[in-house]
Design a protein around this nucleic acid. Structure first.
Length: 484
RNA sequence: CGCGGGGUGGAGCAGUCUGGUAGCUCGCGAGGCUCAUAACCUCGAGGUCGCAGGUUCAAAUCCUGCCCCCGCAACCA
């Protein structure tokens, strides 16, 4: 479910950029290396490659069902697309003098065949094997991040050689700055092949395998073929680059990644959007609690329509904060907001207009039905306050419902009636457009019912009455069915 | 003194930076409307804003101390 929150967030942002007329390249990917995968595969008696090859189509299928409009899916096991860039990046960091061999000492449990962290130990003993791990020292390549505290602080607060990097939300930036003040440590960038086999080999040193950071972070530019003959670097160098990630990997994206890029001579991205985690019914999702919510169950509940889930995540989980998934609340939200407020509004307006023959009249020059209007909406989305943008669309919806009751168009006659209904139809056009990034399928159905085409961009569409050729609405149709 | 988030009417939240009549959604009660998906609209009940001190003419908001809850990095398909 965590993946879904992230992909929906990134998808809404991508769709918003596209609607503004930007060319967008929306890339997602999977980190498929590491000891964990290696072990999981062993446990199933298959190779790591077989394991990840089996899982990737499941992801892709899920994203398709959710309407995630990604352009590129990059896999870290892709030896043609991913590996060459990573190895080239490694060489550049090495040439820049940022990689050095250091010895790493940790507590190693021979039973688990891996290093233990504090969390894995109870009274100093391995939880699984009830014995004290031994101190083992191994040689790793380290990325000398400790030298860059000041640089990174400047990057976030002022600039680093003219480059800026913006973290959203602000609280994460504060956290990152606090982390820098505590002093940065060098980061292990490789493991001996004996302890990590499943990964990308270190160039020029066959005894070592790259650790996750150099490998996985680089996917952003390997997807563009950076440092290769199929380079499409214009999507990076000349673009506005936004990363959307979870808080678990925030510090790596906030600190290691920009430093890596800087020393490799590649520009640093513009924005880092960090989302929180989802709990389930107020508790951490875990197998043992049995409260894991599977996205496919939610899709099934709404007959395969991804929009209730997309709406819920966008509406209930402010970007950057932790959220909660609750069946009770998604159902309430579906009934009260989507079905009663929005779906019913569309229906009552279209029914009234169709009773008059479906023809639209004068919509006036402007209307206060739009509440804070497009300016506020654009500002919200541009600042990644997606929930505010969606709330605005719902404010207009509510305003329209009030307006109908106030004007009582069913009691009006002739032009007066047509004008009120045309105003409402126009307001619904704006609502539909505002919903386009969030619930694209629903927004398209609304536009179709209104008798409009789905626009590629919003250019020239956001002024009141800007659809000059729009004279007739279509047939009403239930937007959201009752549940059960 | 590890770090972070939080404690506001029955539930979920906003408001706290930049003190000044405590707001929203859901639920509940009453009324209205009848175009519509038994949907919509209006009004109302309900909170000493975790606790205790302090600053101030004035504190949910600032300061000090304390208590409690939740995360700490998700394979969970």
């Amino acid at each position: 479910m965590g993946h879904v929150l992230e992909k929906v967030l990134a998808d809404v942002v991508s769709r918003w950029f596209r609607l503004q007329g930007d060319e967008v390249r929306f890339q997602i990917g999977t980190d498929e290396h590491g000891v964990k995968i290696q072990r999981a595969a062993e446990a199933e008696g298959i190779t790591p490659k077989e394991l990840v090859d089996r899982n990737v189509p499941l992801f892709e299928d899920l994203y398709k069902k959710l309407g995630i409009s990604y352009d590129v899916f990059i896999r870290t096991t892709d030896q043609k697309k991913h590996w060459p860039t990573v190895q080239e990046l490694w060489k550049k960091l090495n040439e820049a003098g940022k990689l050095e061999k250091q010895s790493y000492t940790g507590l190693y449990c021979s039973g688990c065949e891996r290093f233990m962290t504090k969390k894995d130990l109870e009274d100093g003993k391995c939880v699984n094997h009830k014995k004290e791990p031994e101190e083992v020292t191994e040689e790793n390549y380290f990325f000398t991040l400790s030298a860059d505290g000041e640089n990174l602080k400047n990057l976030l607060t002022k600039n680093w050689d003219g480059e800026e990097y913006r973290i959203i939300p602000q609280s994460r930036e504060n956290e990152t700055l606090a982390l820098i003040d505590q002093g940065l440590e060098d980061v292990s960038f490789s493991r001996p092949k004996t302890s990590l086999e499943w990964g990308i080999p270190v160039p020029g040193d066959d005894d070592h395998t790259m650790y996750v950071w150099c490998d996985a972070l680089t996917n952003y530019i390997s997807g563009l073929g950076y440092f290769t003959d199929h380079e499409e670097s214009e999507w990076w160098d000349d673009a506005n680059v936004t990363h959307v990630i979870g808080k678990d990997i925030a510090r790596f994206h906030a600190l290691i990644w920009p430093a890596m890029l800087k020393y490799a001579g590649v520009r640093i991205p513009d924005s880092l959007v960090i989302h929180g985690f989802l709990t389930s019914e107020g508790e951490k999702m875990s197998k043992s609690l049995g409260n894991v919510v599977v996205p496919s169950e939610v899709l099934e509940k709404f007959k395969g329509n991804p929009d209730p889930l997309r709406f819920y995540l966008s509406h209930e989980v402010p970007v950057g904060r932790d959220g909660d998934f609750s069946w009770d609340r998604i159902i309430k939200l579906y009934d009260s907001k989507m079905r009663n407020d929005l779906g019913n509004l569309l229906n009552r307006v279209l029914v009234l207009i169709n009773k008059e023959g479906g023809e639209l009249g004068d919509r006036g020059a402007s209307s206060d039905l739009l509440c804070d209007g497009w300016k506020a909406y654009e500002e919200s989305l541009n600042n990644f306050k997606l929930e505010d943008g969606l709330a605005l669309a719902m404010d207009i919806t509510s305003k329209c419902n009030q307006y109908i009751d106030e004007k009582k168009p069913w009691g009006l006659e002739g032009d007066e009636k047509i004008v009120v209904l045309s105003e409402l139809a126009e307001a619904l056009r704006h609502i539909s457009l505002m919903l386009l990034p969030f619930v694209p399928h629903t927004a398209e159905r609304m536009l179709n019912q209104l008798g409009l085409k789905v626009p590629e961009t919003l250019e020239g569409k956001t002024d009141w009455g800007s659809e000059k050729d729009w004279q007739k609405v279509g047939e009403p149709e239930i937007l959201f069915e009752p549940l059960e």
